[in-house]
């Protein structure tokens, strides 16, 4: 049962991502992206990472999606402006390239001598927190600076960018 749910969710994640290739309206694409991200959150949960599952829902599905949708609304995009309903003519090359990339990665990853004996144990949020504010503390601070830098950059651009 566990396996069935896992593969089913994975299929949803992949198919939803694939759908972004086809849809024409940005809102639809955003919705497919949300579906893919939520499916991924479920996968995280199934893999035993409950904290990440929650964060995935909050940050991606919550925050980032809102950003996307907000921008779509601001730009007031209608589908006729994004007229590329069908795939552009030169789609074969990139498609083959991506396929090759995937096949290569698959072949290379398959060589991995995976021992199947490991028991699945959930890593509790507490362990993650310990790691985060233990050895990774310096980086947490650094990430804070990164966010600040992004904030400053975004503020400047949105202030000066208005023509």
């Amino acid at each position: 049962m566990y396996e069935v749910i896992f593969y089913l969710t994975a299929a949803i994640a992949v198919l939803a991502a694939g759908a972004i290739l086809k849809v024409s309206h940005p809102v639809h694409a955003a919705l497919y992206l949300v579906i893919s991200l939520l499916a991924l959150a479920l996968i995280f949960f199934l893999l035993g990472a409950p904290l990440l599952a929650a964060l995935q829902v909050m940050i991606y599905a919550g925050a980032i999606m809102v950003l996307f949708l907000f921008l779509i609304m601001v730009m007031n995009l209608r589908s006729e402006r994004n007229q590329s309903l069908s795939l552009p003519s030169g789609w074969k090359g990139p498609a083959i390239l991506a396929l090759i990339l995937w096949l290569e990665l698959m072949l290379l990853l398959n060589r991995y001598p995976a021992e199947e004996t490991n028991e699945m144990t959930a890593i509790e949020p507490k362990a993650v927190g310990h790691a985060l504010f233990g050895p990774y503390l310096v980086l947490v601070e650094a990430a804070a600076v990164l966010l600040l830098a992004a904030l400053v950059a975004a503020l400047y651009l949105s202030r000066k960018g208005r023509s």
Partner: peptide, 26 residues
Amino acid sequence: HNLVTAFVGLEILAVPLFALVAWKPT
């Protein structure tokens, strides 16, 4: 001394540059 550090460092370098490239957007 850690790949995560490198990644975060790389991004702290990159994100300001996004904005700096487009400085004075006009």
